[in-house]
Every structure is written in structure tokens, then in C-alpha cells.
Design a binder for these strands. Sequence first.
RNA 1: GGAGGCCCCCGGGCGUUCGCUCCUCCGUCGUGACGGAGGGGAGGAAAGUCCGAGCUCCGACGGGCAGCAGGCUCGCUAACGGCGAGGCGCGAUGACGCGACGGAAAGUGCAACAGAGAGCAGACCGCUCGUCCCUCCGGGCGAGCAAGGGUGAAAGGGUGCGGUAAGAGCGCACCGCCCGGCCGGCAACGGUCCGGGGCACGGCAAACCCCCUGCGGAGCAAGACCAAAUAGGGGAGCGGAUCGAGGGUCGCCCGUCCCGAGGUCCCGGACCCGCGAGGGCCGGGCGCCGUUCCCGGGUAGGUCGCUGGAGGGUACCGGCAACGGUAUCCGGAGAGGAAUGAACGUCCCCUCGCGAGAGGGACAGAACUCGGCUUACGGGUGCCUCCGCCC
RNA 2: GCCCCCAUCGUCUAGCCAGGCCUAGGACACUGCCCUUUCAAGGCAGCGACACGGGUUCGAAUCCCGUUGGGGGUA
Length: 127
Amino acid sequence: MPEPAVAILGDRFPRAARLRRRGEFDRCYRQGRRLHAGAFTLHALPGAGPVARLGTTVTRRVGGAVTRQRLKRWTREVFRRSPSRAALAGCDLVVHFRPDAARLVFAELQRELERLLAEAARRRRTP
RNA sequence: GGAGGCCCCCGGGCGUUCGCUCCUCCGUCGUGACGGAGGGGAGGAAAGUCCGAGCUCCGACGGGCAGCAGGCUCGCUAACGGCGAGGCGCGAUGACGCGACGGAAAGUGCAACAGAGAGCAGACCGCUCGUCCCUCCGGGCGAGCAAGGGUGAAAGGGUGCGGUAAGAGCGCACCGCCCGGCCGGCAACGGUCCGGGGCACGGCAAACCCCCUGCGGAGCAAGACCAAAUAGGGGAGCGGAUCGAGGGUCGCCCGUCCCGAGGUCCCGGACCCGCGAGGGCCGGGCGCCGUUCCCGGGUAGGUCGCUGGAGGGUACCGGCAACGGUAUCCGGAGAGGAAUGAACGUCCCCUCGCGAGAGGGACAGAACUCGGCUUACGGGUGCCUCCGCCC
RNA sequence: GCCCCCAUCGUCUAGCCAGGCCUAGGACACUGCCCUUUCAAGGCAGCGACACGGGUUCGAAUCCCGUUGGGGGUA
């Protein structure tokens, strides 16, 4: 059976759509294009895979475990429903939060992250 | 009504949509995914990592020294620095709370400054007597004293009476203290009916230390297993007894078991000499096969460890209680860049607003698992204490 | 995750183990004055700290407990 296409994936977010190894993160940091928002950075690395893959990193300086987990969950939620997701198929993405991300609320994060995702998708089509 | 104390409980509920993770069942490809159905899915502190255990590895263990920890008594417990009850001390008007609470009549040490004197002490101002000088005030010398003043955190019992030149446990009464007996209590300790002692023995052991008790180390990134590559590789062992250099583990030392180069004897030999008894020589063999162990090589990855356990609820029984016993019921997370989220409706509480409505609802996220402690934090029931007012 | 260590002026540090001499010392920096035509250098003076909360002691930066905040090791 061929790998499931993005259209079949829909709004779902299984393991195949997540970065899971140290090396994959490092490759994004070193070779990926960086896009900045107020409190976080998006590292985007184009690839040949069938789906876009996402990883999230938060420094301990951001806050306690609850704060850091919340940011990761929000990030996944935005990515999962993002309209730019299909256009980014094959890309490896890492969202890294900086210490002042603790003051973010969901609506603000959603607006900024959507902006970066759309930008990444646009630059991929027209390099 | 206001301030507080103690114990216990809860940690938002219901519904819809889109997702995540694990388990079971079914189906398809195929042995791991995908699809479908059903079910489970953060806490009272999951936290800090401060104690105590289980579990795993370091080969097993004993003794001494060192080190560390604990330290009123009796219980509870797998264990504890935890909990319960009791004793003593301190704090609070009180309910109640807090306590590193063994030893200073073993030794060593410490006590700045002030003060005459700080450890088996001391006489600065004083008090008294004698004597001398002096008109008086007062002063010198000798002797006795420590009541009063003063210094200090601390100055060798307190109050009163007697006593005296003035004084002093010098004597007496009461209080306190020490020793012994008696009584109550398992004990810590208490009582003070009894006897003895005029009182010596100050403080600090979160100073060294002494006494008693306990403790091997590391930690699930412990540890175990698996396919593949360097690699169809290399090395050692595969009879017994005895002696035994030495080696190996928990900070050090010693010892037992353990491992063990090698020696001796026994043993073996298809080789050499001899007719033979036997002697010599060689050997614990080489090659091949089998088997055990080591190196490669425990690194990245995968699987296991991984959740059912000193488990929880209820009832009865024993116990003041902590807790224990019996019966019965329940099944309560197991991820791995790491699952509980997002959006909305409604109910509950609080704030703002005449109102429609708006905003807010704490501390905080499992990572091998338990028992505690500590810290953070929202709310509630009950009982109790003190104060004010009313009847 | 686990295991350790540390905390003193704005910065770097001494004192801590054996408590009192600490009203906490030094260097650089900062402020003012002197010197100089001016600046620098130099001299004098000043400002300025024991992370926080309890406890032990007559007395705590020092000893003990807790909290907070930093740092390191470990695959």
C-alpha cells in the first residue's frame, strides 16, 4: 500500500507527521530556513516525504512544565488545522519558543504561526 | 457578629465537534501498518528530591577502624528522621501549638566588651572593729565581712526571723535542690507519707568529644535480551589430589569462601632404549569435530524491564489511637522530542454594570513503583476557644 | 530523569572549616575635592554587600533546618 496522502490525512496528526529523532531536529536547525515571529522561530526544511512533519522545542527558561506543554499542544493544534499544511508536504518544521513566549495566548499564537506557515509555503513554491 | 484553633472532605459537572495515546475485538494488505467498533487515559500535592523501602547490577560474607545518620518513653510499621499515645520543657487569655528532648559530678576547649572578679572566683564603691592623724568634714594602717550598690548574657540558692562588732546556711521555718527508700506507672516520669544532706554540682555538646542504635555501593540513563556490519576472525579451557606466589569487590585493614601462574605426586603416551621387570624422554599436547568461556562489543537502534501493588472501597471484630485481622466488592494512565488539547453551549461561584451583557475561577503535568516529610494553592462541612452584643 | 556544588558592594574576591577583634577588608568601577592650561596618571574623602525565612547561642556572614535562584556532571 502506498503512503497515505495528505488529503487522506485530513485534520489528523499521527506519528508519521511528527519529528521524533534528535538528528531530524538538528538537520532542521542547521539547514532549515528561519522565519521569526515575536516569541518563537520556525525552522523549515523542504524534503521529499509525503506529509509535512512538525517538531516543537521549548526552553526551560520559558516556564514550568505546564506552560511548556501548553505551548506545544497549542502549536500542534494550529498546525493540525492549518490551511498551509498541504502545501508544505514533505517539509520538516521545528517551532522553537523563546523565554518571553510564556505571555502568549492561544489566539495570538494561532495568528502568528499561521502567518509563518503561509510564508514558508509561499517561499517553497517560489524559491 | 468578630478574631482564631483542630480534624476531615472536594479539586468543577453535563453535552456537541475536530484531534492524540494505550488495550480488546473484527476486516484488508500482510506481520506492521491501515480502516471500523467498544473501553481506559494526570495530582493532592504528580513538585522539591529531604528521609525510608521494594526492585536490578556490582561474586557471597564476617570482624575491627574511620565516616555518616539518628537520639525522652512505650507502641505501630516492610522500613523510616514517619505516625499514634504518654512524659517533661517552652509559648498563647484560651482552643491549642512548638521542641536536634542522651551525657557538662570522663577529658579538651570557648565566653568579645564591661567589670575588682568569668571558674574549685573575687573586693571597686561599701559595712564593722581596733589604732593613728585631724578643730570639724574626713583620711591612713591592721583585722574581719560580702548584706547593699555597681558591671555583665551569666557573679557559687530565694524569702523571713534569729544571730552578730558587722556579717555569712552560722542557726531555724517555708519554698527550691541533691541522695536514698516507699508508692503509682511496662517505661519516660510523677507523688512527697519517710529518712539523710546546709547546698556541693554555673553555661555552651546545631564546639571537639563520650555513650547507645543503625548504615556496603550504585541507581530503571539500574539491568536483561535481539537482528545486522567490521567478521566464515582471534584466544583460552574441557582427569584427580596436594602445596601455593598472587589476584579479586563495597573508604581503609584483617579473615573465610572464590579465582588462580606454577610446583610435586598421581596419571597418560601410538615416541626412544631394553627379551623383560623397568628406565629415559615427552606431554598435560597438534589438526578436525563437539562443547563452555573470553576478546571483538555493548555504542546508535529495537524489544523487555513497565505496571496487580506493603492496592483501594465497605462492613464487622481487637485496640484510647496509629494500626491490625476477617469477609466481600472494585480493577484505577503507561508515553518515549514524550499522549489529557482546542472550540462552543449550559449549569455553579466571584467581580463590574440599572440592564442586555462582559471578565474571571488557584497551585500546578505522571516517566520504575510504593510509605512519609516539606513546600505551593482554591474552596467547603463539623467540632472547639476567646472577645463583644442581645434574650 | 538521576547525582553533586555554589550564593558576600555595580564586577572580581577575602573573611566561614575552629562564632565576638566585622560598624564586613581589598582591587576595579562610580561621585566629589586637590594637583594640571586641560585630560590621563596620582593623592584625599565618599557611596556601596553577607540571597530569603526560621532556629541554636549572651552573641550568627560564620553552626543547623527550610525556601529561592544559579552552576556542573552523567547516555
